[in-house]
């Protein structure tokens, strides 16, 4: 059943959009990730203009992270204070990101930068995750019990000014750290059309040293606000948020996420991480392939913006 999308200005099958939403929702429910890093490339591959894909996906992730954050909130897994500092950084980052995005669009380099960002971040995060999870699986087979390492902040982190106490995370650290991390993730969110959980979660664990029980909840909590801000900025700057597409994607995603969350319970943590790592790497490799292989037509056309 074809449906005309008013902002993307193309006709797409309703069931294709619902199905893509459900498939990515299934994986995001299973692995506890937002799924933006999968959905945005998928939309681009199906012919949605990259600018519309990025902006609309930010809108969809807001919905996904609200329902995810709600579940963590109920069991006390959200550090509001830490979230607020991350959001403050995220607001700055997403603002800069949206401006950079607008300039890149005018220069005709937005597709290239989206692809490069995906290759760089998904490639490195995927490789690290795969290595970590495979080591964990091997260790478990050998029956080695791993004692988690004590959080260990190197000296320079402790010497940073503006120290703040985060009770829920049991931390006393400089507010500059979460501000900078929030800013970086907000920037990537605006450029890549992702929530940024795949960067935020490791950063929270390894750089901030937050306890794992508040990491995912706090990450989702701040993603709500960062993606909402990205949605707003893209709406104002480039008018590329397609509400109709977002509603269809998130309807599918919400249903898929519930099924995925149940399916995820049947797998072990390190197995889940290994599968997720392979998917992340796969998307990165696909993006790299698109950059390296000679395009069918070296020329491309696009409307002049602001006309």
């Amino acid at each position: 059943m074809p449906l005309y999308l008013p902002i993307a200005e193309m006709s797409m099958n309703i069931f294709l959009l619902l199905g893509m939403g459900a498939a990515v929702g299934f994986l995001s429910g299973m692995f506890g990730v937002g799924g933006g890093f999968l959905m945005t490339p998928l939309l681009i591959f199906t012919g949605v203009p990259p600018a519309v894909a990025v902006a609309t996906e930010a809108n969809e992730i807001t919905a996904a992270s609200v329902s995810g954050a709600l579940a963590h909130w109920r069991r006390g897994g959200v550090d509001i204070k830490m979230g607020a500092v991350l959001i403050a950084g995220g607001a700055v980052g997403s603002f800069i990101g949206a401006q950079v995005f607008k300039i890149l669009r005018e220069l005709g380099q937005v597709d290239l930068v989206i692809s490069l960002a995906y290759v760089l971040f998904l490639g490195s995060v995927g490789a690290l995750m795969l290595k970590e999870s495979l080591t964990a699986i091997q260790r478990q087979r050998k029956g080695v019990v791993v004692v988690s390492k004590k959080r260990d902040h190197s000296g320079w982190i402790h010497r940073l000014p503006l120290k703040m106490r985060f009770r829920k995370s049991r931390l006393y650290i400089s507010a500059l750290l979460p501000l900078i991390i929030g800013c970086l993730v907000g920037f990537l969110s605006a450029i890549m059309g992702v929530g940024g959980g795949f960067i935020m979660v490791p950063a929270m664990i390894y750089i901030l040293g937050m306890p794992t029980n508040v990491v995912v909840g706090t990450s989702l909590f701040q993603i709500i606000f960062v993606t909402a801000s990205v949605t707003f900025l893209h709406s104002v700057n480039t008018q590329t948020v397609d509400i109709v597409m977002a509603v269809l994607l998130l309807t599918g995603a919400v249903i898929g996420a519930q099924i995925g969350a149940r399916a995820g319970l049947k797998l072990k943590g390190e197995q889940l991480r290994a599968i997720l790592a392979l998917i992340v790497l796969g998307v990165g490799v696909r993006m790299a392939y698109g950059l390296i292989v000679r395009p069918g037509d070296l020329y491309s056309i696009s409307p002049v913006l602001g006309s």
């Binding site: 919905a63 609200v66 709600l70 900025l233 008018q239 948020v241 977002a246 919400v254």
Partner: peptide, 24 residues
């Protein structure tokens, strides 16, 4: 989207939050 972009952006956010909240 083109004449009231700020309102449009807020509406998009509202729809997403409402949908996420309902689902949750």
């Amino acid at each position: 989207a083109h004449m009231r972009p700020a309102l449009y952006g807020l509406l998009a956010i509202f729809i997403a939050v409402a949908a996420g909240w309902t689902a949750g």
